[in-house]
């Protein structure tokens, strides 16, 4: 699988990672290397092997349904770039 410059720009945009035009070739080569690795893995015959969805062979731990958190808003908001009237503030996201 070969990646175009446009693919790199699109992936970077989706991941909100700033990739400058001068870095694109470098990133393209590194990503291509990762895809090559995947190609190698896909060549392995895995018929009859149940796929894993997690690196560790364990199952999800469940907690009982109970409210254990208290209101710590003031502390959290001291750590936020901008907050007012209890809201976290972000640059306007609709026109």
């Amino acid at each position: 699988m070969s990646l175009t410059t446009q693919d790199i720009e699109r992936i970077a945009h989706l991941a909100r990672i700033a990739v400058t035009p001068s870095d694109v070739t470098d990133v393209q080569a590194k990503l291509a290397g990762i895809f090559q690795l995947i190609d190698e893995m896909q060549a392995v015959d895995t018929r009859g092997v149940e796929p894993m969805s997690h690196g560790l062979d364990m199952v999800l731990r469940l907690r009982e349904d109970a409210v254990t958190e208290t209101n710590q808003r003031d502390k959290f908001q001291r750590n936020a770039p901008a907050a007012a009237d209890g809201y976290y503030l972000v640059p306007k996201v609709i026109e």
């Binding site: 209890g86 809201y87 503030l89 640059p91 306007k92």
Partner: peptide
């Protein structure tokens, strides 16, 4: 909320 803060959106 988009109408409470000038130029900013509030997140709840």
């Amino acid at each position: 909320v988009h109408d409470l803060f000038e130029g900013q959106s509030g997140v709840d």
